[in-house]
Simulated assay, not measured.
Amino acid sequence: MRKKRSGGGANWMDTYGDMVTLLLCFFVMLYSMSTLDQQKWIALVESFNPVAEAQHSGGVGEDTAAEGLTQQQVDDDIEKLYQSMREYIEEENLSTQISVTKGDGYVFVSFDNTVFFEGNRYTLRDEGKVVLDQIAQCIAEASASVDEIRVLGHTAQEDGVNPNDPTADRFLASNRAAVVTVYLQEKNIVDPARLVSVGYGEWRPVAENDTSEGRAQNRRVELLIAGLNVENGIGDDIAQYYTMRSGESETAGGTEGDAGTSGSLAQAQSGSGGEG
């Protein structure tokens, strides 16, 4: 008598059921993707592609910062920024420690080093934080028109004959500029991409180093606040960076006169700046 096979006959049903379940999961996933929030999709793409993030934020060849602004509005904001800083300095009797000047499309602020730091240190003093809080508030009111803020750190040559040790000198200037930059960034007044710190060391003096008064003038921190040039075909400072980095346009690295805001920045740094 032939024996009956046990089990096995329904094995194909198990496989079929697994396949149907997988298909169901697949179509549910497709449906969920079809209704994916646009911002979530953008965030997903940017997490895999940093360049896409720059493009989305206007970093690559897209002047989104100036969208909806006219040059007159930008110029008015820069003028208001200059006036508000002047009023603050006068009201607080800080004219011996802080000076502010205005040029074509920029505001230049120079701080005596004692406003922010002790000698040979780069820890921000509490009194300096109070000053920066007010300066940040002034900038915030014009933030939509700001192209770039450069924080410039300077030291003085202690020996009138021999230069400072270059490592200590450069690091001190750079660290001081970076500390002020970080403090401003934490105030969320502008896009962090528009904040730049630069350490010049002793190499851009505004006075002689053979007197204590001259050295005191050379030890300083400065802010160079440039307004947008909405008519500049290259774009704002962020767009210019990505254009120059990719080499897409020879004009991006042009002369000071034809680079819009970059020309204003170079002009501001070519002279004595905020010491006037």
Rank of each mutant, 00 (worst) to 15 (best):
E141D: 13
E118R: 01
D191W: 07
Y82D: 08
V182G: 11
G7S: 15
M13E: 10
N232G: 04
A65T: 06
R86S: 14
Q71A: 10
E231W: 00
E46A: 07
S57H: 12
N162P: 01
G9F: 12
T70A: 05
E222G: 09
E250N: 08
E91N: 13
V196K: 14
S99W: 12
I98K: 01
L36K: 05
A266I: 10
I42M: 07
D159T: 03
A54R: 03
G7L: 11
Q269L: 15
I89H: 06
I149H: 04
F27T: 07
A268T: 02
D169M: 02
P166T: 03
V51D: 15
I234E: 11
D126C: 06
M13F: 08
V28F: 09
T123P: 00
Y122R: 02
A52R: 14
E158T: 07
E141L: 11
Q72I: 10
T261H: 05
S99A: 14
A168N: 09
R204C: 06
M244Y: 04
T123A: 05
V151E: 04
M85I: 15
T261S: 05
L81R: 01
Y122N: 11
E158A: 14
D112W: 13
A144G: 06
D159H: 06
R125K: 15
K80A: 01
T101W: 11
A136K: 03
D112H: 14
R86C: 10
S212I: 09
V74I: 08
S99G: 12
R125T: 15
G199A: 07
E275K: 13
G105R: 01
N209W: 02
A140V: 08
K40C: 12
F108I: 00
G271M: 11
W12D: 12
E213A: 13
D236N: 03
T101D: 03
Q73M: 03
W41M: 15
L23V: 03
Y200L: 02
D236M: 00
V180Q: 04
S99C: 11
Q73L: 07
M33I: 03
A239N: 01
A216D: 10
T96G: 12
T101Y: 03
N188L: 13
W12S: 11
Y122M: 00
D18H: 06
S145E: 04
S84T: 15
K40V: 14
D76V: 14
P192Q: 10
L36V: 01
V221Q: 13
L124M: 08
K40R: 10
V198S: 08
T255V: 09
V28H: 03
Y200T: 10
G276I: 09
M85F: 11
G201T: 04
L224S: 06
S212D: 12
G17W: 04
F117P: 05
W203G: 00
A43K: 00
D133C: 15
T251K: 06
E62C: 10
A136P: 15
R219W: 10
R194F: 09
L265Q: 01
L81I: 14
V161L: 15
V161Q: 12
F111S: 08
S57W: 01
E53S: 13
G61H: 03
Q217W: 01
A173H: 05
S6G: 10
L94K: 01
M19G: 01
A207E: 14
S174C: 09
E250F: 14
G9P: 00
S262E: 04
A66D: 05
